[in-house]
Design a protein around this nucleic acid. Structure first.
Length: 505
RNA sequence: GCAGGUGUAGCUCAGUUGGUUAGAGCGCCGGUCUGUGGCACCGGAGGUCGGUGGUUCGAGCCCACCCACCUGUACCA
């Protein structure tokens, strides 16, 4: 056994990220804005844990062959299976079912938190990411759905996406169910094929109408022209049935699309109910003025999840951004949701209608960064008191300065490393410190400290090319009496916070 | 899972027909008791060349298998 190379490699599992600095600040700011809108609409905060019993999250328990398919699962000491939540909706359903009698109905709540998916990560796809949900449980009316859509629109604008740069698309599962029933895919025995159809439609924007047609029929090659790569088995529908599904998908948006849907569903009861619901939603958003492009009826939106039972919605960003290679960046949907009347009923037996939606916080933040709407200003660091002299009584002096600054509400710290002055200056620079405080024995004897404004200093130093001159210049540095230290620092901080008028430039 | 691609320092990469102790740039860390961020100067840390086995006197280089990562695709209850 070799004794070397037993060191663990410092590395993060794939699909996970560390976040810090400006990104964290921006996340916090965005969460605050979303929360403000949700509360304005009358939703209350609710927090649930990241871990639930596996059977509370969904139908499938991990088994021997696929212990962690999709979700991260593990066994408790009593052998019950636990899982990390993969969304915030299932835990909400559990909470409502568990405390049903005590809650006001309808129950209106919001929650933000990390969710976990044990899937292959990719660009913009992580195994841990943050969602911010709002749900109304116990309201059967489509008014609840319409309200959620309007709130989604308001929220996107609140976080900085301009009107016209996004659209909330609305559809209704019942319409699709009606179509599927009409082509003979109704009933329990066709669950699998229905899901296949759902997913095929979901890929419309990615692979186009012809691609969807292939997936509805026999199947599709990864590279259709060459018939190479991976082959995806299709739903195996007949030509007529395919046409019917495509007619639904291609019905078109808005009022005209709605009119065409009436023909597509024909006499099918579920389909007609779905169209009626969409008509009601359309009327509500029109009355509220959200029909100006903010919210749009669009039959091509289906959402991949199986548990939706009625209206479904998806927020899409419509602006184009190019990446560093000049290729257009696709942000995909940044939020989505729908009605899930069966989810609470799983626990209670009685029907409990519910509707809600979910914002992909990480993805939205990513999009905002591309829009240049993310405040990427680095935090102002602490004032750093340099340690010029390592005798204990002098250290005590430095600590006193720090505590005086802190007592006045100024972020400050004494340098705690072991390096010399040059390194301490570099440290302060890297921490984005607004100023450093220098007191060697000369300053100490005079009852003074040297205060150096690092921001001003940097500007002045930029004009100096000669090293000796640079070292001698000590730009933006001045002496103050020990008692005036706090005021001097406060002055520097005020200058930093205020917008510069450009007079010095 | 499938297809293709890539593996040499933290990053970007050199490394000759197989030949001593594997290099560069950038980055990182520091520079002798009163000193100063950037530039310049000096010094330093950091690699069992993705792993294992094989061929060979000798492998970063050749062969086999494995692994990891990237891109696409599928799956995503």
């Amino acid at each position: 056994m070799s004794t070397q190379s037993n060191k663990p490699k410092a590395r993060l599992p794939r699909g996970l990220v560390d976040r810090h600095g400006a990104e964290l600040t921006a996340t916090r700011a965005m969460l605050d804005k979303i929360r403000a809108v949700y509360e304005l609409y009358g939703f209350d905060a609710l927090e649930t844990p990241a871990i639930e019993y596996t059977d509370a999250l969904g139908k499938f328990l991990p088994d021997q062959d696929r212990p962690n398919e999709g979700v991260f699962s593990f066994q408790d000491d009593d052998e019950q299976w636990l899982s990390l939540r993969y969304d915030l909706t299932a835990p909400l359903a559990r909470h409502v079912a568990e405390h049903f009698d005590a809650l006001p109905k309808p129950f209106r709540s919001y929650r933000a938190g990390f969710v976990f998916r044990n899937e292959k990560p990719g660009p913009g796809r992580f195994r841990q990411f943050m969602q911010f949900d709002a749900d109304t449980v116990g309201a059967p009316s489509v008014s609840a759905d319409a309200e959620i859509c309007m709130m989604a629109a308001d929220t996107l604008e609140a976080v900085g996406i301009a009107r016209g740069d996004y659209v909330i698309k609305v559809n209704n599962r019942k319409v699709l169910d009606g179509v599927l029933e009409a082509i003979g895919l109704g009933g329990e025995e066709n669950v699998g094929r229905r899901l296949t159809v759902l997913r095929a439609i979901d890929k419309l924007d990615k692979i186009g109408v012809d691609g969807v047609r292939d997936l509805l029929g026999a199947g599709r090659w990864e590279n259709p022209e060459a018939k190479s790569g991976d082959f995806t088995k299709g739903a195996g529908l007949e030509g007529g049935a395919i046409d019917k599904v495509l007619a639904f998908v291609n019905a078109g948006t808005g009022v005209e699309g709605l009119a065409r849907l009436v023909d597509v569903v024909g006499e099918n009861a579920a389909g007609r109910a779905g169209v009626e619901e969409l008509q009601l939603i359309a009327a509500l958003i029109t009355a509220a003025g959200y029909d100006d492009g903010r919210i749009l009826i669009d039959p091509s939106v289906v959402r991949g999840l199986e548990y939706y039972t009625g209206p479904v919605y998806e927020a899409e960003l419509t602006f184009q951004v190019k990446d560093e290679n000049g290729r257009p960046v696709r942000f995909g949907s940044v939020a989505g949701g729908g009605r899930y009347d069966g989810l609470v009923a799983r626990f209670r037996g009685e029907a409990v209608p519910a509707t809600g939606f979910s914002i992909g916080v990480s993805r939205l933040l990513h999009a905002l960064a591309h829009l240049g709407k993310m405040d990427a200003e680095p935090e102002i660091g602490p004032v750093v008191v340099l340690v010029m002299d390592k005798q204990p009584e002098r250290i005590a002096d430095y600590m006193k300065m720090v505590s005086d600054l802190r007592a006045n509400g100024i972020r400050a710290e004494m340098y705690l490393g072991g390096a010399g002055m040059k390194a301490q200056m570099k440290y302060a620079d890297k921490r984005n410190a607004p100023a450093v405080i220098i007191q060697g024995s000369n300053e100490k004897d005079a009852g003074e400290v040297q205060v150096k404004d690092l921001v001003e200093g940097k500007k002045i130093a930029a004009g100096i090319t000669d090293n000796a001159e640079y070292r001698a210049a000590r730009p933006a540095q001045f002496a103050v009496k020990e008692g005036e230290l706090v005021d001097a620092i406060r002055g520097i901080l005020e200058r930093r916070a205020a917008p510069t008028l450009g007079l010095a430039d």
